[in-house]
Design a protein around this nucleic acid. Structure first.
Ligand code: MN
Ligand code: MN
Ligand code: ZN
Ligand code: ZN
Lengths: 145, 145
DNA sequence: ACTTTATTGAGAATGATTCTCAAGTAACTT
DNA sequence: AAGTTACTTGAGAATCATTCTCAATAAAGT
């Protein structure tokens, strides 16, 4: 999907709920797509401000909530005491490996683990609605320096 | 290990670092052992106060940090925006299943998953120092009510 | 008991996130 | 294009968990 198509999909989702398309809302999604990493509110805030957009943290949080709700973004908890968000369009499910020293985040996905998780929930007759799986490490770089 | 032995081990660990054994510190550990669940600061706080102990939240947090550091407790993040702590003595490693509706926390441990996690880190030459794995569900009870 | 040093509680501070509300803007209607 | 309505926005206050500050207190050693 092209950038433009994604933005249009977001606009459609917004209008579909009687909400309004605003430059701030579009800018947040744009920013998430410009930066493939795992971003926190203030990174987005600084970025948009640097681009001369008038925006507040409150609006960024509000928009991120919408993006998560509509499936355009995923919220993650890296144990730093604040949330990070990542683009979720044209992306496959994955979990995260976090270096406790330098903070670098890498990704992993293991089909076997994914399957076992579902089995565990089925066995207890629970409906799985999500999961969070983080490995905390000292990464190769940090070990050698 | 008996309760008394565990308390003594904690006292030893404290003195070993030139710190002092205080009634508050012992009371927090005692409370964790009285309650097998996953407790947050205020539950412990209310409990100790109900038992006529003079204690502050600050001291509870400070003590929980010590208990985690010495391996007597584990801190966990249930996604509610505050930390919970559980007794870690005479207990096997496990991860958690959290009902998004009623908040009930159950536990699971799967050897295969544990093994794969280690393999993943080994493959990237990272040293694993911990992991956090939560399954979010609607539990059987909540589904039927 | 005396001395030293760590600990404590109260309340202030912090920091991320959410809330409030008056002013602004999108979108629809003439 | 102007008017109407309803949603959105930014600023700053509020919230909430957690941490910090510091003077008073208590543990441990002598
Ligand atoms: Mn990711
Ligand atoms: Mn547990
Ligand atoms: Zn690293
Ligand atoms: Zn439930």
């Amino acid at each position: 999907m092209t950038r433009k198509q994604i933005i249009n999909k977001f606009k459609k989702a917004i209008r579909n709920e009687q909400l309004k398309v605003t430059p701030q809302r579009v800018a947040v999604l744009d920013d998430l797509m410009d930066h493939p990493g795992h971003r926190e509110c203030d990174e987005i805030f600084d970025d948009l401000r640097a681009n001369d957009m008038k925006v507040s943290r409150a609006t960024i949080y509000r928009t991120l909530d919408l993006l998560v709700k509509y499936g355009f973004a995923k919220k993650l908890n890296t144990g730093e005491g604040r949330s990070r968000f990542e683009n979720r369009i044209d992306t496959h499910h994955h979990d995260h490996i976090i270096c406790n020293k330098c903070g670098t985040i890498t990704e992993f996905c293991n089909d076997e683990i994914e399957k076992i998780q579902i089995d565990i929930c089925n066995d207890m007759d629970a409906q799985i609605v999500g999961h969070e799986h983080q490995l905390f490490v000292i990464c190769a770089d940090c070990r050698n320096n």
